[in-house]
Design a protein around this nucleic acid. Structure first.
Ligand SMILES: [Zn+2]
Ligand SMILES: [Zn+2]
Ligand SMILES: [Zn+2]
Ligand SMILES: [Zn+2]
Lengths: 172, 172
DNA sequence: ATGGCAGCTACAACGATTGGAGGTTCAAGC
DNA sequence: GCTTGAACCTCCAATCGTTGTAGCTGCCAT
């Protein structure tokens, strides 16, 4: 029979801003709270638990859409948990992919800085490499996608000649 | 004496969407292009070079504000390059920090999935851990900050007793 | 009853990009 | 020279999750 929580109580307990909690209600992630006569929100233990779940999942990097799905599952405890695990696996894959990209980025940034001997901007290795990808060893994802696409389905000649004769300008 | 480029030419050459180029102009990152009588943009080699620089830096994870600073430096080649290197170092630090966070995330997600034996949602390790950070080994950044802050400057009693007697409710 | 923190709604901003609607221009091909 | 249609134009809105602000009103202790 604990007393109901104010929105500020929830915010403190779950490490969320008050605004954020109202936002979750607005988008239907948190169920509407009861209200005092004056219109202020009063939350139950169940609300508290739900918000803790949401905030914890957020800190672990899940998106609100994923969290919505996870909450629905958590409300149906007799269901098989395959879908929950799938969402977590998807998130893990996403995290791993970001790590790979960031590690490549780190390598290239470190190389720039290692190679720069200081001096004038005109000789700065950082600026040079940024200005010219040919000097760069970073494996840009966009590049792969483009090459992939062109190998899979080479664009029709018509598409290549877009720009009314100005496409494929010399020097590009 | 190459012919001027259309916005679409630039987009193809620099792997950017047409919209994005117009956006860069709107926020002053790209200088305004010349216009035909009909109002269409016509770009020079210099524009092309600048956009390539921007897009390359974007792919390496720099923010537009950082890129703005780097472009100013690139336009002043006699300046010392210390500031450019500092921006790159800052970016490297940011990337490294993100990698550390993502690696901790990856470990916790992998642990959830490893420990889940399948079955009902009621027994799902993924749901359990999301619902209760006590079961979690992830080193949440927010936690550290909070503890840090409280050690450095414990909030006044008045602040702790916010909520008009309802803060610090039992069970929190 | 008065002070003052906490709450309320509604809207805008962040960062960077993308999508769409609704209309105009350009150059290729005839 | 005319037609055709892709490419261009501007303006506005959405994405994602959160935060800030303005201008109020409510709640509770003193
Ligand atoms: Zn340098
Ligand atoms: Zn590159
Ligand atoms: Zn499971
Ligand atoms: Zn945790």
């Amino acid at each position: 029979m604990t007393r109901p929580y104010s929105i500020g109580d929830l915010a403190r307990a779950c490490d969320a801003k008050v605004q954020t909690i109202r936002h979750y209600e607005a988008i239907g992630l948190m169920p509407p709270a009861a209200r005092t006569e004056g219109g202020q929100r009063r939350y139950s233990q169940a609300h508290l638990k739900r918000l803790k779940f949401i905030r914890h999942a957020r800190e672990l990097g899940f998106g609100l859409a994923q969290i919505r799905a996870l909450l629905e599952l958590a409300d149906a405890p007799e269901q098989p948990c395959a879908r929950a695990d799938a969402i977590a696996r998807e998130q893990l894959a996403e995290v791993e992919s970001r790590i790979r990209r960031l590690e490549a980025l780190r390598a290239e940034l470190a190389r720039m800085l290692r190679e720069c001997r200081g001096g004038r901007v005109a000789d700065c290795r950082v600026i040079e490499i940024l200005a010219d990808h040919e000097l760069c060893r970073f494996h840009h994802a966009a590049e792969d996608e483009r090459k992939e696409k062109e190998r899979a389905a080479p664009p029709p000649v018509k598409a290549r000649r877009r720009g009314r004769g100005r496409a494929r300008v010399e020097g590009l």
